[in-house]
């Protein structure tokens, strides 16, 4: 493998590709990771079938049972594919291995981003494939090509946004050391306010407004809702929100990283 290390993008592309090849090398691991999505989708189809039945209506807040299930597939695929970078970073801070990564000829944050994305891409595709097969079998065919294209684009930006927030939590380990609690709570925000367990459309209006004002919805709800309703207006709305949050959180990561590394003292060994 020939890598021109002087070109910055090439370095990170090589890291991403290596991680991707690593995922391909263990197909059974990949399949085992995707079992979880089947489990959740099976529970959801039971829950929402009963709920739609009890309501006695074909649509709730404009979504049919099939729409809701395809929405949940995309939401779960994003959630279960993303690499938990906050854990990677905080583990490296706690066990001291961060010292070996900081002096390598790459940016610590971009290294994690490339490795994380390389790990997530194949898992995302496998989750969509296996989960999609189950949902198709249970509730009928998927949305059209436009839905796939718009949702995949938004899902990539969602992974990026999640990375920025996870990096902020991980970097907090330089100060607090133990960041598990922040991580769990962030995941639960994604679960509830992000719309992973229930589409935001089913929320009372005031809570929908609160959720839309926070970044979590644009990591989960945005791509998932676009998947079942890929209108131009919705695409613009999702992308604008994602870009806005990316600029804000990306800047915060850069500043916070510079500050914590400045505070770091490494004692030989």
């Amino acid at each position: 493998m020939r890598v021109e290390l002087t070109r910055p993008a090439a370095k990170y592309w090589a890291i991403l590709r290596t991680q991707l090849q690593n995922s391909f090398a263990y197909p059974l691991d990949l399949l085992a990771r995707s079992v979880t999505i089947l489990l959740f989708l099976w529970v959801f189809v039971n829950l929402w079938r009963v709920t739609y039945g009890a309501m006695g209506s074909q649509r709730i807040a404009g979504l049919s049972l099939a729409d809701t299930m395809w929405y949940l597939l995309m939401a779960e695929a994003v959630m279960l594919s993303k690499r938990d970078l906050s854990k990677d970073i905080s583990d490296q801070v706690k066990d001291g291995s961060v010292a070996y990564l900081l002096n390598k000829p790459f940016n610590f944050i971009l290294y994690h981003f490339a490795a994380g994305l390389g790990d997530s891409l194949l898992v995302f595709a496998t989750n969509l494939l296996l989960g999609g097969a189950l949902v198709w079998w249970l509730v009928g065919p998927p949305p059209g090509v436009l839905g796939w294209a718009a949702a995949v684009l938004a899902a990539l930006l969602a992974l990026l946004l999640d990375f920025c927030i996870s990096a902020l939590i991980g970097l907090a380990a330089f100060i607090a050391e133990e960041v598990s609690a922040f991580r769990w709570i962030y995941q639960k925000f994604l679960l509830v306010l992000g719309g992973l367990l229930i589409p935001l459309d089913f929320f009372p209006e005031w809570l929908q407004n609160v959720s839309r004002a926070l970044p979590f919805a644009w990591i989960v709800y945005g791509p998932a809702r676009l998947f079942v309703d890929p209108s131009a207006a919705r695409l613009a709305d999702v992308l604008l929100h994602q870009m806005g949050w990316l600029v804000g959180t990306g800047l915060a990561v850069a500043l916070f990283y510079r500050w914590v590394v400045g505070q770091l003292t490494i004692n030989g060994g």
Binding site: A181, W184, I185, K188, L191, V192
Partner: peptide
């Protein structure tokens, strides 16, 4: 943290 985590999930 875990108590808060569970409470958020229960939401």
């Amino acid at each position: 943290g875990m108590m808060l985590n569970n409470a958020f999930y229960f939401l």
